[in-house]
């Protein structure tokens, strides 16, 4: 990074390539391999580029990098809009009989997602991974929409805490 701050393009290219792999592995192991991890890696690389002047070469690189990764990840999860997700559509239309348990088992690969309480895990999986709207997810779990929004908010806060705890 110090070399990149000095303007060495080759070193910088290598650093970004390595970071891309490291961050991708980090996200996949914690959240599973979903579409948002790719977007997240790109956002992290852009943030690293924009924030490179704030890295202090006298200090360790890792805390600086992972502060950015944690922030961008939570940001990406929060901004993850309900969309016409193929997997959700597939589950709704083609396999209406699929059980929630098997659905979560299929998609909840990451260890941070797995560390959430069942209620929080369901909320995050349905809305942020499978792409249901809060209303759809609420109706699926037979709770009110506002209760679902509270669960999502708390689940994201819990994820942030888990990531910060990991960094200590």
């Amino acid at each position: 990074m110090s070399s990149a701050q000095a303007g060495n393009e080759a070193d910088y290219r290598q650093l970004l390539s390595e970071l891309s792999t490291v961050v991708n592995r980090y996200l996949v192991s914690r959240f599973g391999g979903y579409e948002f991890t790719e977007d997240c890696v790109q956002e992290v690389l852009i943030a690293v580029h924009e924030a490179r002047h704030t890295y202090d070469p006298r200090k360790q690189f890792r805390p600086w990098l992972f502060a950015i990764v944690r922030h961008k990840t939570i940001d990406a999860i929060r901004r993850q809009k309900a969309r016409e997700n193929q997997q959700a559509q597939h589950c709704l239309a083609e396999e209406p009989s699929v059980s929630d348990a098997s659905l979560y088992a299929e998609v909840s690969g990451g260890r941070l997602i797995a560390a959430l309480s069942p209620a929080h895990r369901e909320a995050i999986t349905l809305t942020k991974i499978l792409g249901y709207t809060a209303a759809e997810a609420a109706s699926r779990l037979e709770i009110s929409e506002s209760a679902m929004k509270v669960r999502i908010h708390r689940a994201i806060a819990r994820l942030r805490k888990l990531m910060e705890k990991e960094a200590l």
Binding site: A4, Q5, E9, H53, T54, D56, P57
Partner: peptide, 21 residues
Amino acid sequence: MLIDRLADDLQPVRSVGPRLG
């Protein structure tokens, strides 16, 4: 590709860390 674009955009920068205090 994003990495190429960012690397092409690279300009030398002065670290603010040591000057923050």
